[in-house]
Amino acid sequence: MRALLVVNPAATTTSVRTREVLTHALANDLKLEVAETQYRGHARDLAREAAEGGQIELVVALGGDGTVNEVVNGLLTQGPDPDSHPRLAVVPGGSTNVFARALGLPNDVVEATGALLDALRDRSERTVGLGLASGTPGTEDEGIPERWFTFCAGFGFDAGVVGRVEQQRERGKRSTHALYLRQFVRQFLGETNRRHGTITLERPGEAEGSTEVTEDLVMSIICNTAPWTYLGNRPVYPSPEASFDAALDLFALSKFSAPAVTRYATQLLTSTPDRGPHGKHVVSLHDQTDFTLHSQAPLPFQMDGDHLGLRTSVTFTGVRRALRVIV
């Protein structure tokens, strides 16, 4: 099998030696080409070239969730037809690696490489669904290019936390779970004066041609799988039913006071695959194919942990069976 290994040399948990051992191990079983990313978006460009060239059968992403997201978007440039683009394999090298771990892969690079080689020999793969975000027609965000995400997107509070973390990383801070927790607190303190939510949810109603509207939401998390993220080895489940085999799940809050945040943050930290946050201020939707989030004021937006700036409207589509993955 002819394969391309896309390596993020800045991956948080890999060293030069580790990457060399991984490359040697894969080269024993594959006709392997290796490319290191040199700029933001380079992994997407490399994967797109591999898909368009027609010779590469497998693209292996070595890096964190951001690298995986770029590779996925490159592979799906021409659309979500699993039979028309190379398969994807992931070797986790970031600080969290949500997508890889949600697939059941070990979080250790060496163990994950061994699992990948076993899967290749056994011809073991699965086809997973993905999320797609695009600018909403008729809004100022209409012309923003659509983009795929593998495990989550956020519009509002959690995207603001991601943006703060990225700012700290640009200043030389290491991406750690403690850093995320500190920025969570700072983001919350910065929003304590917001009494009413600015987000409106629109989705198709039960009657043909109708629309259901939910207003005054203060934060929203869109999940393509569970868990949403990890704090160390602790999985967090805002949408426990979310699955690669279904469309998208939505978790939102309509109140953001200190008591409400304390209650729901505690529920998040103690959430399980059987029970997520619940209460009168929680909006939970499962297996949603199409919906739109609008905001009266521009809000931060993130996908797979990558901060994408401010948006006033985003349309989400859940696409089943979009990508073949070696597992």
Rank of each mutant, 00 (worst) to 15 (best):
Gly156Cys: 06
Gly163Phe: 05
Phe188Ile: 11
Glu170Lys: 14
Arg147Trp: 01
Ser175Asp: 13
Ile144Val: 15
Arg169Trp: 02
His177Arg: 11
Glu140Lys: 13
Glu140Cys: 07
Thr176Ser: 15
Tyr180Phe: 15
Arg169Glu: 11
Gln187Pro: 00
Ser175His: 11
Trp148Val: 07
Leu189Val: 13
Asp158His: 12
Arg174Asn: 01
Phe151Gln: 00
Glu166Val: 11
Arg147Glu: 02
Glu166Leu: 05
Arg174Ala: 14
Ala153Trp: 02
Ala178Cys: 00
Phe149Ala: 05
Leu181Pro: 01
Arg147Tyr: 00
Leu181Tyr: 04
Thr176His: 03
Val165Ala: 04
Gly138Arg: 10
Arg182Gln: 11
Arg186Thr: 09
Gln167Thr: 14
Glu146Trp: 03
Tyr180Lys: 11
Ala159Met: 03
Glu140Gln: 14
Ala178His: 03
Arg169Leu: 11
His177Lys: 12
Thr150Leu: 07
Thr139Phe: 03
Phe155His: 04
Trp148Ile: 09
Val161Pro: 07
Ser175Met: 13
Ala153Asp: 02
Trp148Arg: 12
Phe157His: 07
Asp158Met: 09
Arg171Leu: 14
Gln187Asp: 06
Gly156Lys: 05
Ala178Leu: 14
Thr150Phe: 02
Trp148Thr: 08
Phe157Ile: 06
His177Gln: 12
Ser175Gly: 07
Asp158Lys: 06
Gln167Phe: 04
Phe184Ser: 09
Cys152Arg: 03
Val185Gln: 07
Arg164Glu: 11
Gln183Glu: 15
Ile144Asp: 03
Gly154Pro: 01
Val185His: 02
His177Glu: 09
Gly172His: 12
Gly138His: 08
Glu170Val: 05
Glu170Ala: 14
Glu146Asn: 13
Gly138Leu: 10
Pro145Cys: 09
Lys173His: 14
Gly172Ser: 10
Glu142Gly: 08
Phe184Gln: 01
Gly154Asp: 10
Gln167Gly: 15
Asp141Asn: 08
Tyr180Cys: 06
Thr150His: 00
Leu189Ser: 11
Lys173Thr: 10
Arg164Gly: 11
Glu140Arg: 12
Ala159Glu: 01
Val161Tyr: 12
Phe149Trp: 08
Glu142Gln: 14
Gly156Ala: 08
Val165His: 07
Glu170Trp: 04
Glu166Trp: 07
Gly172Glu: 07
Leu189Asp: 09
Pro145Thr: 06
Phe155Arg: 05
Glu146Ile: 05
Tyr180Gly: 07
Glu146Val: 05
Phe157Asp: 03
Lys173Ala: 15
Thr150Val: 15
Ile144Trp: 14
Leu181Val: 15
Arg171Ala: 15
Glu142Ser: 14
Val185Asn: 00
Glu166Asp: 14
Val165Tyr: 02
Gly138Gln: 10
Val165Cys: 12
Arg182Pro: 00
His177Tyr: 13
Val161Glu: 03
Gly138Thr: 10
Arg171Tyr: 03
Gly172Val: 11
Gly160Trp: 01
His177Cys: 06
Asp158Ser: 13
Val162Arg: 02
Ile144Tyr: 04
Gly138Asn: 08
Phe188Met: 12
Gln183Arg: 15
Gly138Trp: 10
Arg174Glu: 12
Ala153Lys: 01
Gln183Phe: 05
Asp141Pro: 03
Asp158Tyr: 09
Val185Leu: 15
Arg169Pro: 00
Phe151Arg: 00
Arg147Gly: 00
Leu179Glu: 03
His177Asp: 14
Arg164His: 13
Cys152Leu: 05
Leu181Ile: 14
Ser175Gln: 13
Arg186Asn: 04
Thr150Trp: 00
Asp158Glu: 13
Arg186Gly: 02
Gln168Trp: 12
Arg164Tyr: 10
Thr150Ser: 13
Tyr180Trp: 12
